[in-house]
Computed example of a mutant assay.
Amino acid sequence: MGFFGRLKESLSKTRKNFVEKIDSIVTGRKVIDEELYEELEEALIQADVGIDASLELVENLRAEVKSRRISNPEDLYTVLKELIQDILGVASTDININSAQPAVIMVVGVNGVGKTTTIGKLAHYFKANGKSVLLSAADTFRAAAIDQLEIWGNRVGVAVIKHSEGSDPAAVAFDSMHAAQARKIDVLIVDTAGRLHTKSNLMEELKKVHRVIGREMPDAPHEVLLVLDATTGQNAISQARLFKEAVGVTGIALTKLDGTAKGGVVIAIKQGLDIPIKMIGVGEGIDDLRPFDAREFVDALFARDNKPAEQ
């Protein structure tokens, strides 16, 4: 199965909760009335598109219905797909690794979102694309985090720079920067502790790691990648907002899309925070983390099983 097929399969829960519900709302209706708009709004909110994004989508839908003089409710399905595509855009947004050597990616996120696994898969992705990779175990809060990163390093075949548990995370980042420069590494991926985003002292520590990286290399880190768990829905939005304020998140890796009926959070993130989603995880396999392509995502989300999906 190709990646589009896996993406379509991973969105099956969201499609059932969201797109199929929209389909059922508009199918067989005779008129486009206020009740129809309210039902569509409710379906969007339940899929974790978010209140603000849902209201905006329905208002834009009203405007399109009026300007295009649409009278058939079933035409709303296609129009809504177009409007969601407008929010997400059409281009894929690549991780910035071409501006320097090493390109430094600082990875942040709370415990339980799949951060270390995402780093391992990201290292595999870059290595498969011909890049040399080094991992930095700057999550020194738990010994298990260092061990887990080493397991991924061995699996992928990349080295890991580490200190002992409880060491200063900024010191690990410092040593990793020098090692990456000395070895002429293409991509340095820096793991950080699974910050409880409500703890200001831990956020300050993240800022320190960020400062140290920037001091060692101008414009670094080149990416601050926030790992979010799609199954947490709107909670992911509040996490993203706080991390963005603390360390200037430049992109999001969204994991566990295959395990949720609330994949509409992709729309909420883009509309509410304007942080690009750069990578998505659609399964547990090592190849199941890929660059996010907005058009591909929308086509997979709106694909009907009784007809070929748009490519």
Rank of each mutant, 00 (worst) to 15 (best):
F4G: 08
G5Q: 14
G5A: 14
K8T: 10
E9V: 13
E9R: 09
S10Q: 02
S12G: 09
S12R: 05
S12T: 09
K13R: 10
K13C: 06
T14K: 02
K16T: 13
N17C: 08
E20G: 03
R29D: 08
V31A: 14
E34T: 06
E35P: 05
L36P: 09
Y37R: 10
Y37M: 13
L40W: 02
E42Y: 06
A43V: 04
I51E: 12
D52C: 10
E56N: 15
L61E: 02
L61I: 00
A63D: 15
V65S: 06
K66I: 13
K66F: 13
S67I: 10
S71A: 10
S71Q: 13
S71V: 09
P73D: 03
L76D: 01
L76E: 05
I84W: 02
S92M: 14
T93M: 08
N98W: 15
S99P: 07
I105E: 07
I105N: 04
V108G: 05
N111Q: 15
K115L: 03
I119S: 01
I119N: 03
H124A: 15
Y125W: 08
F126C: 04
V133A: 04
S136Y: 06
D139G: 06
R142M: 06
A143W: 15
A143G: 15
A144C: 10
A145V: 09
D147W: 06
L149H: 04
L149G: 03
W152P: 00
V158I: 05
V158M: 04
I161V: 15
I161Q: 04
I161K: 03
K162C: 14
S167M: 11
D168K: 06
A171P: 12
V172F: 06
A180E: 04
A182N: 14
L188R: 04
I189Q: 01
G194Q: 05
G194A: 07
S200P: 11
N201R: 12
L202C: 11
M203Q: 06
K208P: 00
H210Y: 14
R215K: 15
M217A: 08
L225W: 02
A240F: 11
L242F: 15
F243P: 00
A246Q: 07
G248D: 11
G248Q: 12
G251F: 11
A253R: 01
A253H: 04
L257I: 04
D258Y: 07
G259F: 10
G259C: 13
G259T: 13
A261K: 04
G263R: 00
G264I: 05
G264C: 07
V266G: 02
V266K: 03
Q271V: 11
L273G: 03
I275V: 11
I275F: 07
I275Y: 00
K278H: 07
M279P: 04
I280M: 03
V282R: 00
G285Q: 15
G285K: 15
I286A: 14
L289I: 07
A294K: 00
E296M: 08
E296P: 09
V298E: 00
D299R: 08
L301K: 01
E310K: 10
